[in-house]
Design a protein around this nucleic acid. Structure first.
Lengths: 161, 161
DNA sequence: GAAATTGTGTTATATTATAACATAATAATT
DNA sequence: AATTATTATGTTATAATATAACACAATTTC
């Protein structure tokens, strides 16, 4: 097993360059296939989001962007994030006011995260059917029609316990 | 069945004075039994939160508080909210940056909400075992130890569909 | 190539939240 | 009851997050 095959967050030894490369390739493909414009700014912000598996705040991203584009302002970043979030390339973590890259933007899904309060890394669940069913069940009981959900689970990842 | 017995949110006809009265009684009892100080400000902010089943932002509460206490400032409200949230009398809704009263602060529980995007009312689930189990199952699969969770389900309540 | 649409630049400001330090009120101790 | 310690509030300032509005540029459509 090469180091490249060790996947994603909560895996301290993983090769993050691979995560970035994969994410950018998927983004390019997705935007091409859906005829979306992955402009330079949007692409760069996406790369900056993928700097790590720790969520980044808009202003952290702005600071980095400014290092290379001195006229960047809050709207520059927020507009890029709006686009990226709209197309599932990035998710917003409500409890942190921060943003994290999504590694499967091509499949429609809701956001479900495990957030490690020690290393601050975030893992996205793969649209857990188990949780979705539980949510549906509760909503149905009350005649509530679900359109979206936010599931953010705080705790300690395996490596940090 | 008297109108008083029609419960809580998503029930347009319910007698909200009863919700408020009950919530305040429970708060008084809880604070007495736990030797917590439900000061005038805290009590008043709790009442203001209970104005309805729509979550209130800190600054909406501040505006109301100022109508009766002209020197109220942001810290006045945020400190009261800190206290109320700490003791489960109020929950913070992360996706709305807003606060909602809790009708069962005496039992330890995690926050799980149904949020109607039409009428803006919010119903708290009663610490759904179904959802908790689903969350635990997913977390266990990844060796993640859960300490807290945020579950916010957006959609349409029965009355608004 | 003209018109329409979409994206970016720029300035200003809205909204949400906290830091820091002074004073007041309450509780605990003597 | 007076002293001390603790907790709560008053007050000013500012940090952190996010959006409005309008001008201009780039791209797409016709």
């Amino acid at each position: 097993m090469s180091i490249d095959s060790i996947a994603g967050p909560f895996q301290p030894g993983h090769n993050h360059k691979v995560c970035i490369r994969d994410a950018m390739n998927i983004a390019e493909q997705l935007c091409q296939s859906k005829d979306l414009r992955l402009t330079k700014i949007r692409k760069r912000v996406l790369e900056l989001v993928w700097t790590g598996h720790e969520p980044a705040t808009a202003y952290q991203l702005l600071k980095k962007l400014r290092a290379e584009r001195e006229n960047a302002e809050p709207p520059t970043v927020y507009r890029a994030l709006d686009f990226l979030v709209e197309h599932n390339l990035v998710h917003r973590i409500e409890s942190l006011n921060a943003f994290i890259g999504c590694d499967h933007p091509e499949s429609e899904h809701v956001s479900q995260f495990l957030i490690c309060s020690h290393c601050n890394q975030v893992a996205e669940l793969d649209d857990s059917v188990t949780i979705n069913n539980a949510v549906s069940e509760e909503a149905n009981r009350l005649g509530f029609r679900v359109s979206d959900q936010t599931v953010e689970i705080m705790g300690l990842c395996a490596a940090c316990q």
